[in-house]
Amino acid sequence: MNSCRLNFVFISLFVVVLLVGCNPEKKKQKTLKETSVSGFEAPEGGRLLFNGKTLDGWDVTKFGTEGPVMVSEGKIVINMGDGASGITWAGDFPHVNYEVNLEARKTAGNDFFCGMTFPVNDDFCSLIIGGWGGPVVGLSCIDDLDASDNETQILKRFDKDIWYQIKLQVNDEKITGWVDDEKLVDFNYRGRKLSTRPEVDLSKPFGICTWLTTAELRNIWMKELE
Rank of each mutant, 00 (worst) to 15 (best):
8 F>S: 00
11 I>E: 01
11 I>S: 01
14 F>Y: 08
17 V>S: 07
22 C>V: 14
23 N>K: 14
23 N>D: 02
23 N>H: 11
25 E>Q: 11
26 K>C: 06
26 K>Y: 12
33 K>H: 12
34 E>Q: 11
34 E>F: 13
35 T>V: 12
38 S>G: 03
38 S>F: 12
45 G>Y: 01
45 G>E: 03
49 L>H: 04
50 F>M: 07
64 G>K: 05
65 T>M: 12
66 E>P: 00
67 G>C: 05
69 V>W: 06
73 E>S: 15
74 G>Q: 06
79 N>T: 00
87 I>A: 01
89 W>L: 15
91 G>S: 10
93 F>T: 11
94 P>R: 05
99 E>R: 03
102 L>S: 12
106 K>E: 03
108 A>L: 14
108 A>K: 05
113 F>C: 09
116 M>K: 09
116 M>V: 15
120 V>Q: 09
122 D>T: 13
126 S>V: 07
126 S>Y: 05
133 G>K: 09
136 V>F: 13
140 S>A: 15
144 D>S: 13
146 D>A: 13
147 A>H: 10
150 N>D: 10
153 Q>F: 04
160 K>F: 07
160 K>Y: 11
161 D>R: 03
161 D>N: 05
168 L>F: 04
168 L>K: 03
169 Q>I: 15
175 I>Y: 05
175 I>E: 07
177 G>A: 15
178 W>Q: 07
179 V>A: 08
181 D>S: 11
184 L>Y: 04
185 V>W: 08
186 D>F: 05
187 F>C: 00
187 F>D: 01
196 T>A: 08
197 R>P: 08
206 F>P: 02
206 F>L: 13
207 G>I: 14
210 T>F: 06
212 L>D: 06
216 E>A: 09
218 R>P: 02
